[in-house]
Amino acid sequence: MAIKNLQTGCDLTTDELVRLVRGGDIGHYEGIVSRYQGEILRIVSCTLYDRSQTEDVVQQVFVNAFLHLADFELDRDFGAWLRTIARNAVREHLRNNARYERRLKVYAELVSQRWEDDERAIEFEESVQQALHDCMQRLPHQAARAIRLRYQEALDFSTMAARMNTTAGALRNLLSRVRVQLRECIERGLARQSDS
C-alpha cells in the first residue's frame, strides 16, 4: 500500500514513516498499521480466536510495536521485526488462556516450531493462502456461500441455516464436508507447489 507524504505527494517507505513517528508525528503510525495489519492478521489467526479477540490481539501488537519503536533499527526489515512482536504476543495470549492452551496445545507447539524460521514460516503461510485461493474458486456456489457466511460474516450455525433455508444439522454437515474438501485440495496444491 502506498502511503503518501501529504506535502510532497511522494510515497513514503516504512523507514520514512518510522522516522516521522519517532519525530513526534504520531499520525503517520496509521500508515504503518494499514501497511502491515494483513500480515499480522495472518499470524494472529493461528490462535483461532473469534473476530473481536483477533482484532484485540492485532491492535495490541501495533501498540506494543509503537511502545518499542525506539528499539527498531532503521534499514532493517520492519516486517520481520513486527512479526517477532506479533508471535511473542500470540504466545503470551495462548499461555494466558488456559482453555486454548490445553485444547490447542499440539497445534500451538507445531506453529511455534514453524515460527523458528521466519522465512520458511512466511513461505508456508503464503503457500497455504495461494492454495486456498485456488481451491475456493472451485467450490460450488452453496459451499462457497456457507464458508463466506461462517468466516466473513462470523455467523453462528442457526443464523446461517436460516439464511440458507436449511436446518442447522444439515448446514453443519455441509460445512464439515467443505472444510475437509478444502483441506485435501490445499494439500494437493502444496504438493504441486513444492514439486515445481
Partner: peptide, 14 residues
C-alpha cells in the same frame, strides 16, 4: 492441516 485451514480462512475472510 485442518487447523491451518481454519487459520487461513480466518485470515483471508475476516
Amino acid at each position: 492441516s485442518l487447523l491451518d485451514l481454519e487459520a487461513a480462512l480466518l485470515a483471508r475472510l475476516s
